[in-house]
């Protein structure tokens, strides 16, 4: 999903960079001092974890691979604002240090793999959890579903950006079909990894999962918090 340089023109790349910079500023402001001494270490760890799993390409169809993107995972684990910082660190270092993803396409990559994915995941997670029983199984199922859709959203964002400023000659309908069909498969991988990771942490330390804290109030710490609020 890392876009190389030259795919999309300068105007759209700059526009994406401006939007990304705005979102990062919001993330920096809203996340400052929001996690306690228990949950804060998770924020840094999530960045390392997503970076590592992004190196692991899994085969999805003949001659194609995919890897975890992590926007959904990050937003469920540490909340949307901290997730923006996490994805910014991961995607920026990939481009700057490892030449994975173009430098002029950095704004586009931050937008697609970070911001779009986080916004879609956060809204969808909250919406689906409203409808379902507040159990551990629901949280895992919703996490996997949200992860799947977040990949489609990132892929859709790419197609939209390409339609605005693609450098080659293209037929947007066939670009859409081509990009979306392969990302349906990659989305399944994203759903599996996200569901398993969230499930593993829920089983051990449910109180550390941002998305679950509101729904699993059995934990002492949370009862204290809700009294204060």
């Amino acid at each position: 999903m890392h876009m190389p340089d030259g795919l999309i023109n300068a105007q759209v790349s700059i526009g994406a960079a401006v939007i990304a910079a705005g979102a990062i500023t919001v993330g920096l402001k809203k996340s400052k001092g929001t996690l306690d001494s228990q949950t804060a270490p998770l924020a840094g760890l999530v960045a390392v974890f997503i970076f590592a799993f992004q190196m692991m390409n899994f085969p999805v169809a003949a001659g194609t691979s995919g890897h975890l993107m992590g926007g959904a995972l990050a937003s469920i684990l540490v909340g949307p604002y901290v997730a923006i910082l996490v994805m910014t660190v991961v995607v920026s270092l990939q481009a700057l240090v490892f030449a994975d993803g173009g430098l002029s396409a950095l704004g586009l990559n931050l937008l697609n793999m970070g911001i779009v994915s986080i916004v879609v995941s956060t809204i969808l997670f909250a919406g689906l959890m409203k409808l379902l029983p507040k159990t551990r199984i629901s949280i895992i199922g919703v996490s996997a579903t949200v992860a799947f859709i977040s990949v489609l959203a990132s892929a859709g964002a790419f197609v939209f950006e390409y339609s605005l400023g693609g450098n080659a000659t293209y037929n947007i309908a066939s670009v859409l079909i081509s990009v979306m069909s392969v990302h349906v498969l990659i989305g399944i991988g994203e759903a599996i990894i996200t569901g398993l990771t969230i499930g593993a942490i829920l089983a051990t330390r449910a109180d550390l999962v941002y998305g679950a804290r509101k729904f699993l109030p059995a934990h002492n710490l949370l009862i204290k918090e809700s009294v204060v609020a």
Partner: peptide, 12 residues
């Protein structure tokens, strides 16, 4: 890790 092109590379 699979060294095949990723989804976006493949589609583009």
């Amino acid at each position: 890790s699979s060294s095949q092109p990723d989804g976006l590379q493949k589609a583009t």
